[in-house]
């Protein structure tokens, strides 16, 4: 029998701990496939966040560090500066990256730190049980915004790609979604490009995945995808914000 799909070498034989219908597994796979394709498995190291993907350090098949809440870009900076011959990425969720770790991501991007950042935005804190995230949409209900996110009180959601795009240093910033087959194919191209730029030592690369959280949104996975397409994408518009490689 012909094998047409198999586990990427960059993923260990450790079962994912994600909920049914969660997009973290897809994002992990896209990253692992890209690392395999660029032949970087021997020189790669990743930094896992705090949040649902906290166990990412178990899943990838190379050296991994588990960072404190929001500190992954700082940890990645330390690793990269200590091992400049290695290629480093962080994998972070919205609470981790856009709330408690805002300073770290902004400054790593501003330094043009030679790392790739993969940012999963599903508008909610997953692991802690569905609290409001910095990316929670206006009027969206969560366990800590039970009457809906009131923008007059708590402000609007943060669009991280747009925020980072104000900085001079970043090399590549793109927002993709994981909400349909074609979207995932597009996302793969973006991830692969980020890993390629990382391999070439171009600078700071950033991919945002617009994702879902069926469990904490209280929807089945298909409905969650539909809801995200209708509600998330108008606010978090996919697209390339910055690609210095394409301009060269």
């Amino acid at each position: 029998m012909e094998v047409i799909a198999t586990r990427p070498e960059s993923l260990r034989e450790v079962p994912f701990t994600y909920c049914p219908g969660c997009t973290h597994g897809i994002a992990h796979r896209l990253i692992a496939e890209s690392i395999d394709e660029h032949g970087l498995i021997n020189k790669m190291a990743g930094v896992a966040p705090v949040g649902c993907s906290v166990f990412a350090y178990k899943f990838f098949n190379f050296d991994m560090a588990e960072a404190a809440h929001g500190r992954a870009p700082a940890v990645a900076t330390g690793i990269k500066r200590a091992r400049p011959d290695m290629h480093i990425f962080t994998y972070q969720g919205d609470g981790d990256l856009a709330a408690i770790g805002t300073a770290e991501i902004v400054h790593a991007a501003n330094r043009g730190e030679h790392i790739s950042v993969f940012f999963v935005n599903n508008a909610i804190y997953g692991m802690t049980g569905g609290q409001m995230a910095p990316t929670t949409l206006p009027d969206m209900k969560t366990t800590t915004s039970p009457y809906g996110r009131k923008v007059d009180d708590i402000g609007y959601p943060i669009r991280v790609c747009e925020l980072l795009d104000t900085l001079v240093a970043p090399y590549y910033i793109e927002r993709v979604s994981l909400l349909s087959g074609p979207d995932i194919i597009k996302a793969k191209r973006a991830v692969s490009k980020a890993i390629q730029y990382n391999k070439e030592g171009r600078g700071f690369t950033f991919i945002e995945f617009v994702s879902t959280c069926p469990t904490n949104w209280g929807m089945d996975p298909v409905k969650a995808m539909e809801w995200a397409r209708e509600n998330m994408l108008p606010f978090y518009k996919p697209g390339v914000f910055r690609d210095k490689g394409a301009q060269e």
Binding site: A74, G78, K80, A82
Partner: peptide, 10 residues
């Protein structure tokens, strides 16, 4: 945390 990363890199 940068120290954590660099120390983690030995």
């Amino acid at each position: 945390n940068m120290v954590y990363g660099a120390a983690g890199a030995g």
